[in-house]
Design a protein around this nucleic acid. Structure first.
Length: 285
DNA sequence: ACGCCCGCCTGTAAGC
DNA sequence: TGCTTACAGGCGGGCG
């Protein structure tokens, strides 16, 4: 049964929500100073180097690629943030008490600061020249289709899915195929499409591929509109510390033992690839 | 080259 | 009650 506090991890809708907040707050703002206190949040290059390359720079409009936040700087370089499992990017007043696990603080020149808070320290911040992405950030460089940013036809998407020889959920969470999906939205999208997590990708019919494509866009657009999902632990919050609302619309995630809204069968929970997977055994085939 | 699994982390909660 | 164990999961690295 469900009930245990599940970890709500930032996926595309959550990162997009933070991006929109961030864009409003920092576009055109100048970085006055940077303090790096956490041991692991800055891993690509030295902490001193990060501080030097950020200090005095003006930030441009915030972008997003998959689950990566990208803030172009007036130096031409990019500041990149990945929240991974438990990272939070928060806008705060320097006077406010700093939460535990605050690893990086970026002070802005006309008041306010950005805080990178991350209990489990999987997240990271780095600066990269866009020309050196392939060498210094291949993970970011090799991202696949971003469903909100890249106009792609369902036929192109179908070709991509059919090129992989593995289970559908593995394909959907492969960042080189679809950028931005994680455990929660993969399960929600597969339920919306009426497809099981373990369907071999190459067995999908054109009709199923088209339905899957539509489900990706539909679920993600609705989740962004609801400002993402926050679960019991409220690990995910936006730039202002507010929770999202999309968890109220979850059809399968953390709903094991409860009736499927579509067919009233009992939602099942299983382990797949070492991760929890929720699905309806009746209406997903 | 591709598919698959482990380890990294901390907070929370279930189990003994 | 207090300790131990399991679980949460993105992604790089290593293996077959």
């Amino acid at each position: 049964m469900s009930g245990a506090a599940a970890g709500a991890v930032p996926e595309l809708p959550e990162v997009e929500t933070v991006r929109r907040d961030l864009d409003r707050e920092i576009a055109g703002r100048k970085i006055k100073s940077v303090a790096v206190t956490g041991a692991r949040s800055v891993r690509r290059g030295s902490k001193a180097e990060l501080v030097e390359r950020l200090t005095g720079r003006t930030m441009k409009a915030a972008k997003r690629r998959g689950k990566y936040l990208v803030v172009p700087l007036d130096s031409g370089e990019w500041m990149v943030v990945h929240l991974r499992m438990s990272g939070q990017l928060l806008k705060a007043n320097p006077k406010d008490p700093k939460p535990k696990h605050t690893h990086v603080v970026i002070t802005l020149d006309k008041g306010g600061e950005l805080r990178f808070v991350d209990p489990r320290t999987f997240g990271e911040i780095f600066v990269v020249p866009p020309g050196k992405l392939a060498d210094e950030a291949p993970d970011l460089d090799e991202l696949g289709w971003d469903p909100l940013e890249d106009p792609v036809s369902w036929v192109d998407f179908a070709r991509l899915v059919m090129s992989k020889r593995t289970a559908l959920k593995t394909v959907m969470t492969d960042q080189k195929v679809v950028a931005g999906l994680g455990n929660i939205y993969a399960d929600e999208i597969l339920h919306a499409a009426g497809l099981r997590f373990d369907r071999p990708s190459q067995t999908l019919t054109p009709q199923e591929l088209r339905r899957l494509f539509r489900s990706v866009l539909e679920v993600l657009h609705e989740a962004v509109a609801a400002r993402g999902s926050s679960l019991a632990d409220e690990q995910y919050v936006d730039l202002y510390g507010r929770t999202g609302l999309y968890q109220r619309q979850h059809q399968v995630y953390a709903r094991d033992g409860k009736p499927c809204y579509r067919c009233r069968s009992t939602i099942a929970k299983t382990k797949f690839g070492g991760r929890s997977t929720y699905f309806c055994p009746s209406c997903q085939v």
